[in-house]
Design a protein around this nucleic acid. Structure first.
Lengths: 175, 175
DNA sequence: TCGATCCTGAACACTCATGTTCAGAATGCT
DNA sequence: AGCATTCTGAACATGAGTGTTCAGGATCGA
């Protein structure tokens, strides 16, 4: 997938991206006329994936916070792509789309606060950013093999909420 | 400073970097013969700055955790440069240096655990990464004007330790 | 004032990613 | 088999960034 290559190397050649995607550079160009178009498409897809993860987790009752974290961890690569690509900071359209997504997550966190699973002491925007950052860190460590995918949501949750019961037993430091 | 330009735009032209630094491209080349040399130098400086912030905070008794967070927030731009530059992930020398820095922070956090200011439930490596990530988020929001520099350490601390007393009064959500 | 040092703008060659075109191969559908 | 669609490899032009050189200007101390 183009996302993976671009996460590892944002300046990757179109030739490299094409070969990683298993197609020729010519074919790549037929789909995305220009490099910018490709980056845009990847970014839009990444945002869609993230948005779906969030809205999917928003449905249903009970521990929303746990669900949204668990849903975001697997899409960490997309998060990383968006996050590590400063070019999008200056693109108004993508920037607006991202603000929407932050808004959706903020709504979810608001519900989590009402549920009592998230402290209401911190500013909502901060909780949103902290969650994204922690999810990113978790998925990075999964990628590096330091963290088991199933343990990741627990770590993020425990950090974000101080719920010690969320810490995966495999990982705790009881000593 | 070259760091600032490269944080905002990792693929920035040497001409752009030079003009941002207030020198001619020729002069830049005389200092750093090649682009790679420049990036290396910036990375090494960034790491040195971070390392000094950490070791500086390690000295002295009392709330080490608060000191190290407060010391790292101002160097967030350097953190951002290192973090957003995947090319360093593959450079063995710089990678080793970064592991050293993580180790230094880990030692500091170990002291914080003994002090009782940091929960001992989470794995040490996770605390290290979470701290870096939260500091980065804080400094990004400072840059964007959403967060007052003096409030940042409190937010990071509160998130990392659930110490509600660390939350800046200006920022809390008492309602 | 002289000399040393550093900086500067301009010019140049060179490499490399990009974007385009096209004829032919591969694939799939009827 | 015939046809349409898609993919492919190769070639090419172009532009941009890079690295180099050099003659001249600026700065500063002796």
């Amino acid at each position: 997938m183009a996302t993976d290559v671009l996460v590892a190397e944002p300046g990757a050649t179109l030739a490299a991206i094409a070969s990683a995607a298993g197609v020729s550079r010519t074919t790549l160009h037929s789909h995305y006329p220009t490099r910018q178009a490709l980056l845009r498409a990847v970014a839009e897809r990444a945002m869609r994936v993230c948005a779906e993860a969030i809205s999917g987790a928003a449905e249903g009752g009970g521990d929303v916070l746990a669900r949204v974290v668990a849903a975001l961890v697997p899409v960490g690569a997309h998060l990383a792509f968006l996050w590590r690509n400063p070019s999008f900071d200056h693109d108004p359209e993508l920037g607006a789309r991202w603000l929407e997504i932050e808004g959706e997550l903020r709504d979810v966190l608001e519900v989590a606060r009402e549920e009592g699973s998230l402290s209401a002491d911190l500013p909502d925007w901060w909780s949103v950013h902290a969650l994204f950052a922690l999810v990113y860190v978790a998925s990075e460590n999964i990628f590096l093999g330091r963290l088991a995918p199933l343990d990741a949501p627990g770590l993020v949750l425990a950090t974000l909420t101080s719920r010690r019961d969320a810490i995966p037993a495999r990982i705790g430091r009881p000593r």
